[in-house]
């Protein structure tokens, strides 16, 4: 696969050119090197997985992409431009949304309010407009509510829309968090262990949602996941990390047969 041309996957989805590229990223915390000289690219419309044992630096990588950490070395290229060091909210405005490993919902707010908060980059009414409410603010609220309801329908959470998030069970919270990221209509959706702690049925639901999001909205998805069956099934390409280094990159079958990857996961006999 070269950088720019589109390809069509066996299941009929079109994968476009490179939309995001990480070039020689190195991230250090004091003396600890979390990520060491990693490069990979993400192509438009694909599902890109990052896997690796615990502490490999996967979440740190996602945090670099979402602007939470600024790497000491290396460049992030997004849509053909080098990205300046940014705050997370600026990254969000560029069309990158994410979910968290430990659910990070707003517990005091209802499901609907949580989802509507994800929509805030599409809401432009000034604070004075909002105070008066009639007119611009109300129109905007209704228009964005429409979009929020579409996502609610899509993820099948109609029955809980007015429930405070704090009262929901774990699996539903994960789904609400996905809804909050999705409603922003992101170009790239980052999912940090979307299936952690779920039972088989919930995992199947979540897989279906991820595939549907990718298929229906054409959203590029970068996900971290530990469940190998899931990763190998749904992703188009996989990056494998271990101890902050990249040890494999390619389509699932290549990665599965990569000796370094097998060593990292199964351990290696040193003789």
């Amino acid at each position: 696969m070269d950088g720019q041309t589109s390809t069509v996957t066996p299941d009929g989805r079109t994968i476009g050119g490179v939309v995001m590229e990480m070039r020689n990223i190195t991230l250090r915390f004091g003396g600890v090197i979390a990520i060491k000289d990693i490069s990979f690219d993400v192509r438009h419309g694909e599902i890109r997985a990052i896997i690796g044992p615990n502490g490999a630096g996967k979440s740190s990588m996602l945090n670099v992409i979402s602007g939470f950490y600024n790497p000491q070395e290396g460049e992030v290229w997004y849509k053909g431009e080098k990205r300046k060091p940014m705050k997370p909210y600026q990254v969000a405005r560029q069309g990158i949304a994410r979910t968290f490993q430990n659910i990070a919902l707003f517990d005091g707010m209802t499901v609907l309010d949580n989802i509507m908060t994800g929509r805030l980059n599409h809401m432009k009414a000034s604070i004075l407009d909002q105070a008066i409410w009639w007119g611009r603010a109300e129109r905007e609220e209704v228009a964005n509510r429409q979009k929020a309801e579409e996502v609610i329908d899509f993820l099948e959470i109609q029955s809980i829309r007015k429930t405070p998030v704090g009262r929901l069970p774990y699996g539903l919270k994960k789904r609400v968090e996905l809804a909050r990221a999705l409603v922003a209509e992101p170009e790239i959706l980052l999912l940090d262990e979307p299936m952690a702690g779920m039972n088989v049925e919930e995992k199947e639901d979540m897989c279906r949602f991820i595939l549907d999001v990718n298929d229906e909205f054409g959203t590029t998805i970068v996900l971290i996941e530990h469940d190998m069956g899931v990763v190998m099934d749904i992703s188009d390409r996989v990056v494998v990390m271990d101890y902050g280094k990249k040890i494999g990159d390619g389509v699932p079958d290549e990665v599965r047969n990569n000796p370094d990857v097998i060593d990292a996961y199964l351990g290696v006999a040193h003789d």
Partner: peptide
């Protein structure tokens, strides 16, 4: 309210 409930998450979704 998002700042009140979880400021880090709020910042990451664009607040």
């Amino acid at each position: 309210m998002s700042i009140r409930d979880m400021d880090i998450a709020a910042e990451i979704i664009g607040v």
